[in-house]
């Protein structure tokens, strides 16, 4: 097991109150595995990633839990010790390719900085490795493009550069936070293809964050569905698509556009909106949007429990367990 996140909670202390953007989440990532985290905007995906990276900015802070990376709790490390891991053993690609590169640095310098921070190599070797990485991520004539500034490249190209930078030190874990969201559909597919290819080539584990379940079906091994900072369902990708349990997952799946869909019916959308993080419903966070809401749903918080190889947080399956399935938490 490469990483084990245990009961992680992250809070933002604001003037109007405290937002618990990540609430008691636990999961594991195996070596070489692609784990996807899916959820609508605001469900706490990026905050989870930033917590792992130790990149939370004020007023955000980890309120509790452990982030065990190769059995070492990252949350207990000093910034200095974390810096040795960041960009080296764990690296990250961000949601915004257009703005994530320094506009006044040549891209080769940005990648070389990463390499020279973590590897004992000469300038020349770092440059050679940079060009090799640019080539690997599919940038044509990499030796010339290495001299470009970010503004001379398209969004897709910049995301490739980010990927090259993130992979330049051969990380064990790559966190890709919605790497395709800001890109054209065709480019999105290319970048996903690239991530997949990189995993094959370098064998690193990938934490793939997305709000698009369509992306997940193609790339991931296992999926975590997040809602309002909580894990509501977790399963391997086949079984999640074959038999989604949580009403929220069902809603997400129904709202994926089907290419072969001939009917003129408008695309399904989950009704309502993500609740304001400062005014969460009392019971199940999904209760005000759920089609199958029970009476107790708005009173109590359901627990995450094992059901048919999934983990799911919903009272509907509590009923099943009472009906004899003998499910323990």
């Amino acid at each position: 097991m490469l990483m084990e996140v245990k009961a992680l909670s992250t809070e933002f202390k604001l003037k109007r109150g405290t937002v618990r953007a990540v609430d008691d989440i636990s999961f594991t990532i195996d070596e070489g595995e692609i784990l996807a985290i899916v959820g609508e905007s605001g469900s706490g995906k990026s905050v989870t990633a930033l917590s792992i990276m130790g990149l939370l900015q004020n007023p955000g802070r980890i309120a509790g839990g452990e982030i065990l990376f190769k059995s070492q709790d990252l949350n207990k490390l000093s910034q200095k010790e974390l810096q040795k891991i960041r960009g080296n053993r764990i690296s990250m690609i961000f949601q915004e390719p257009m703005t994530s590169l320094n506009p006044v640095w040549r891209i080769k310098d940005q990648i070389m900085e990463s390499i020279m921070t973590h590897m004992k190599v000469s300038q020349k070797e770092a440059l050679a490795r940079t060009i090799e990485m640019l080539d690997t991520v599919g940038i044509p004539s990499p030796a010339e493009r290495a001299n470009d500034y970010p503004h001379q490249m398209s969004g897709g190209m910049r995301q490739r550069v980010m990927t090259a930078m993130a992979l330049s030190c051969g990380p064990d874990l790559l966190i890709a936070d919605e790497p395709t969201t800001a890109l054209d559909v065709t480019i999105q597919a290319q970048i996903l293809e690239l991530l997949y290819r990189m995993r094959e080539k370098f064998g690193m584990a990938v934490l793939l964050i997305t709000h698009d379940l369509g992306v997940v079906s193609e790339a991931a091994d296992r999926v975590i569905v997040m809602y309002c900072g909580k894990i509501v369902e977790e399963a391997d990708v086949k079984s999640l698509f074959a038999r989604p349990l949580h009403p929220y997952t069902v809603g997400l799946l129904q709202s994926i556009p089907q290419i072969d869909d001939e009917s003129d019916e408008p695309l399904y959308m989950i009704k309502g909106m993500v609740p304001n993080p400062l005014r969460m419903p009392r019971g199940c966070p999904f209760s005000d949007r759920c089609d199958r809401c029970l009476e107790r749903c708005s009173q109590e918080m359901p627990k995450l429990q094992d059901v048919d190889g999934h983990k799911v947080r919903c009272f509907l399956y509590d009923v099943v367990s009472e009906g004899g399935h003998a499910q323990n938490e």
Binding site: Q83, R86, E96, T99, S100, N102, W105, E113, M162, M165
Partner: peptide, 26 residues
């Protein structure tokens, strides 16, 4: 606050270097 500063931090370089090399110039 810019995204590229976060990227620089994510590289694992020191905060001092982030400010001197990445933030100051911009």
């Amino acid at each position: 606050q810019q995204d590229y500063i976060r990227t620089a931090r994510a590289k694992g370089i020191s905060e001092g270097r982030v400010i001197r090399k990445h933030a100051l110039r911009n």
